Amino acid sequence: MLSFFKTSLVGQYIFVFLLSMVPLVELRGAVPVAHGFTLTSTGFNLILGYIIIAVGNMIPMPFIFFFARRLLEWGKDKPVIGGFFNFCLTKGEKGGMKLQEKAGGGLYWALLLFVGIPVPGTGAWTGTLAASILDMDFKKSVLAVIGGIALAGIIMSLVSFLSIGAILGFAG
């Protein structure tokens, strides 16, 4: 099964698609993997890979916005899952409060930058959860998160391209 993802072109596209949906990994992890696939002789199309990664990163957004908060609130006092659910709620609330403090009237621009600047703990999952916790408008939040995904994609592409170029340059 794992060899399917390594050797099959379709498997590589499926792999980066699924990887882009994983919390904390998201686009930030899928873009460097896509760059790695281009180094093999499989014919991996990086532009198509970026589109697939962006779509994969966007698919969880409506579910997170409309259901994650309710699920986390429901499970925060449950014996086995309560600790993790409280962690997620706290992270979303802190992210939301930071956005509100720094943004003032430009909350949606702040959300775009929060999602778009690829540092640990930011991304579409956390940004969408923060927007849900802050009761932000869904359509405006989606546009801000999509803009953030595009920005993160550009940044990660440049970082991946420069890193791979440097590694290949040093390797000879």
Results as ranks from 00 to 15, higher is better:
Phe15Ala: 14
Val16Arg: 01
Val16His: 01
Phe17Arg: 00
Leu19Gln: 05
Met21Asp: 11
Pro23Tyr: 11
Leu24Phe: 15
Val25Ile: 15
Val25Thr: 13
Val25Leu: 15
Arg28Pro: 06
Gly29Asp: 12
Ala30Pro: 02
Val33Ile: 14
Val33Asp: 10
Val33Gly: 03
Ala34Phe: 05
Thr38His: 06
Thr38Ala: 08
Thr40Phe: 12
Ser41His: 14
Ser41Trp: 10
Thr42Gly: 13
Thr42Phe: 04
Gly43Met: 08
Gly43Pro: 09
Gly43Ile: 13
Phe44Leu: 11
Ile47Glu: 13
Ile47Thr: 08
Ile47Gln: 05
Ile51Asp: 14
Ala54His: 02
Ala54Phe: 10
Val55Glu: 14
Met61Gly: 08
Pro62Cys: 10
Ile64Glu: 06
Ile64Asp: 09
Phe65Tyr: 15
Phe65Glu: 12
Phe65Asn: 06
Ala68Ile: 01
Ala68Glu: 05
Arg69Pro: 10
Leu72His: 01
Leu72Ser: 01
Leu72Met: 07
Leu72Ile: 04
Glu73Gly: 01
Trp74Phe: 14
Trp74Glu: 14
Gly75Arg: 00
Gly75Pro: 00
Asp77Asn: 11
Lys78Asn: 12
Val80Pro: 05
Phe85Gly: 00
Asn86Cys: 07
Cys88Gln: 11
Leu89His: 01
Lys91Ser: 12
Lys91Val: 13
Gly92Met: 13
Glu93Met: 13
Glu93Arg: 02
Glu93Phe: 09
Lys94Leu: 15
Lys94Phe: 13
Gly95Glu: 10
Gly96Asp: 08
Gly96Asn: 02
Gly96Val: 00
Met97Glu: 13
Gln100Cys: 10
Glu101His: 06
Lys102Ser: 15
Ala103Met: 01
Gly104Ser: 07
Gly104Ile: 01
Gly104Asp: 11
Gly106Arg: 11
Leu107Met: 15
Ala110Ser: 13
Leu111Ser: 06
Leu112Pro: 00
Leu113Met: 12
Gly116Asn: 11
Pro118Thr: 09
Pro120Ser: 04
Pro120Cys: 06
Thr122Trp: 04
Thr122Ser: 11
Gly123Val: 07
Ala130Arg: 00
Ala131Phe: 09
Ser132Pro: 04
Ser132Cys: 09
Asp135Lys: 11
Asp135Trp: 05
Met136Val: 01
Asp137Leu: 14
Lys139Gly: 10
Lys140Leu: 15
Ser141Met: 09
Val142Ser: 09
Val142Ala: 15
Val142Thr: 08
Val142Gly: 04
Leu143Arg: 06
Val145Met: 09
Val145Phe: 10
Val145Glu: 09
